[in-house]
Write a protein that binds this DNA or RNA. Structure first.
Length: 631
DNA sequence: GAGTTTGAAACT
DNA sequence: CAGTTTCAAACTC
């Protein structure tokens, strides 16, 4: 890999090639020059305005140390593959005047360690970072885009000494942290909790127990509405472009608190020397100061040539400003060059709307784990790399691989070679997909079998009713009061038999007749049901009393079977049952909740295919079902 | 810490 | 759109 290129190649505007860019560049230069001309400005401005500055704290500190003596901002250029827009900057907004250590300031900037985000089931009420991503996906995938609005009045000022700092990941127009970038980049210990709701802004409240002072607070301007946003589906399907404006952090600041160029100038000029020391210290010195990550796992960039205005720069790619702790050189990814940053970003997004979209998106399959026991059975990973990796030599087992780095498996979009990604190999993904597909087909078949089974059962039952409509009292009534171990055993064995019938789709009298052989109590059951002589005895029933008894028993079983099928019809899938349990308590769902409380396992088992794995004791549940569901 | 490797991003 | 170059992070020594 050569380093033949030089910065000027990446920054053609510095050569004044593009008039427009030159103009922009000149404007920037003017700004910088202006900054340089205000050395005599009063310096008292800094502390007060710093306290209200709606920018990254690190930047604020930096501003106090900034001379502004930088080169003109680089040319904004890019050209990338086009994709759908996913515009979602989020912002870090600072705490009023808190004294934050240098480390804390660095942390307040952001963490880029998305690879360490741990998955956590949302069922426990908290969300890990990956879960937050999942949450985002689930939010949009569930027609209710549960976007919440932040109200500045509701934004609690997190104590700088608090163990659980709060970051409001607000998605406003303009430059800022992309929500998913935050999700991806927060280190272990950070978690995105519930959406925050208010009237004027939107965001997710992200707490970080491991990063005190990670982010101070969000302050939105009531009434400006600029923080209105929508969270994208992790699959990138739902994103609000309408929210794409060019409001900035500064614009979010309440009147009188806005950071003006004038302020910045005064601010920066006051600390010219310090900034000079910071921004122009030798790379070696910077490298000495920081490693690629700080103690808490927050990454920092080390860009030398891109001025942090290309996606090579992790900070820029993540939609955040570089921090003091970055080791970059000639960095323009700083709030004072906001316009440049915005222009660059917009240009990139115009070419590739997903340029700043999260690289890792949620992958939704049919088989979400619905409880701890199920976790992992069908969901090897919930994340995917947006475009897939292209690894040739790392075999996807090193952080060169973005999939591996993000703790997600490779999949069929990856062009990797010799993939050995421990989170899921590309080949395995195909197998997984096949399994999922097969299972879906299987379920469809089972559903068809159930329908057929039910139809057959109904026909048989109707047939039986021809013999005597009143022959069998309501089985539910009769059995619900007699759910003893004796009956349980009968039902268990019967169900096992019926299970076989269901699977083979070969329900027939001949098979059902074998029930009696399987269950010694089978005839007893029939006996208990058969107290009424047949009004129209058929030749069959006339044949012998034993055969009559058996037929009666069969009819009883068929009726029971029918009830079971009806019960199963209430639950198209175990997941629906589970979801229902947690959702709206309609009357029907209340019943389901009851059912799930009675014995979810048995219901679940019995849902996919009638009476599959009818566990011992669940027949009692059947009695409950029949009774409570009134079917 | 210097040098190398790697693959994404950028460029042609 | 494919091939090449540039880039910075990851990795190795």
């Amino acid at each position: 890999m050569g380093t033949k290129g030089d910065a000027s190649k990446d920054m053609p505007e510095q050569d004044g090639e593009d008039p427009k860019e030159q103009s922009t560049s000149e404007t920037k230069r003017e700004k910088i020059e202006e900054e340089g001309n205000i050395v005599e400005q009063p310096s008292h401005v800094c502390p007060s305005f710093v306290s209200d500055l709606l920018v990254d704290h690190a930047f604020r500190q930096q501003q106090c140390d900034t001379s502004g003596a930088q080169a003109a901002p680089p040319h904004v250029d890019d050209g990338e593959d086009g994709e759908t827009v996913l515009n979602g900057p989020v912002q870090l907004i600072t705490h009023h005047g808190s004294e934050v250590s240098q480390l804390q300031r660095g942390l307040s900037r952001r963490c880029l360690q998305f690879e360490e985000a741990q998955q956590k089931t949302p069922m426990d009420g908290t969300y890990s970072l990956d879960s937050a991503t999942n949450l985002i996906g689930s939010i949009s995938s569930s027609s209710n885009t549960e976007l919440e609005i932040l109200d500045s009045s509701q934004l609690e000022l997190a104590s700088s000494s608090s163990k659980n700092q709060t970051m409001f990941v607000s998605k406003s127009s303009g430059f800022g942290l992309h929500l998913n970038s935050v999700v991806n980049t927060l280190p272990i210990g950070c978690s995105a909790s519930e959406p925050i709701m208010s009237h004027h802004s939107v965001g997710y409240k992200i707490s970080c127990s491991k990063l005190p002072n990670l982010v101070e607070r969000v302050s939105s301007t009531a009434g400006d509405g600029v923080l209105q946003t929508m969270v994208s589906n992790a699959t990138g399907s739902a994103i609000s472009e309408s929210l794409r404006t060019k409001e900035t952090l500064y614009n979010l600041q309440p009147p009188g608190h806005q950071v003006t160029l004038h302020n910045k100038r005064r601010f920066s000029s006051e600390h010219a020397e310090n900034f000079e020391e910071f921004n122009q210290s030798s790379p070696k010195e910077k490298r000495k100061k920081v490693s690629s990550t700080d103690g808490d796992g927050c990454k920092r960039c080390n860009c030398k040539k891109t001025r942090c205005l290309k996606r090579y720069c992790d900070c820029f790619a993540a939609g955040i400003y570089c921090a003091e702790t970055c080791a970059c050189q000639g960095c323009f990814n700083r709030p004072e060059y906001e316009d440049t940053v915005l222009d660059t970003r917009q240009q990139k997004e115009s070419h590739n709307p997903l340029a700043f979209a999260p690289k890792i998106v949620q992958h939704v399959t049919e088989f979400h784990a619905i409880n701890v026991e199920d976790a992992g059975l069908f969901m090897p990973s919930t994340g995917r790399h947006k475009t897939g990796c292209n690894c040739k030599r790392s075999m996807c087992v090193k952080k060169y691989c973005e999939c591996y780095q993000a703790n997600v498996g490779c999949y069929n979009a990856c062009r990797c070679e010799g993939c050995k990604n421990i989170h899921g190999r590309k080949e395995e993904y195909g197998m997984t997909e096949e399994i999922v597909s097969n299972r879906a087909n299987e379920e469809r078949l089972e559903s068809m079998a159930d329908r057929k089974f039910k139809m057959i059962a109904n026909n048989k039952f109707l047939h039986a009713e021809l013999y005597d409509h009143s022959m069998l009292p309501s089985y539910s009534k009769s059995t619900s009061s007699s759910s003893n171990s004796h009956g349980n055993d009968k039902l268990h064995k019967t169900s096992k038999t019926l299970d076989v019938v269901s699977r083979s789709q070969e329900l027939d009298y001949s098979i059902i007749e074998t029930m009696g052989q399987f269950s010694p109590q089978f005839d007893e059951l029939a006996d208990s049901s058969d107290h009424t002589p047949l009004r129209n005895p058929s030749p069959i029933t006339m044949a012998s009393s034993s055969s009559k008894m058996r037929d009666t028993a069969i009819i009883s079983q068929l009726r029971l079977l029918e009830k079971w099928i009806e019960v199963c019809a209430f639950f198209p899938s175990p997941h629906s049952l589970y979801r229902s349990h947690r959702s709206h308590p309609t009357e029907k769902l209340k019943k389901q909740i009851f059912v799930s409380d009675v014995g979810y396992t048995s219901c679940k088992e019995s849902t996919n295919a009638a009476m599959i794995n009818f566990v011992p004791g669940s027949d009692t549940n059947l009695m409950f079902l029949i009774d409570k569901l009134d079917i």
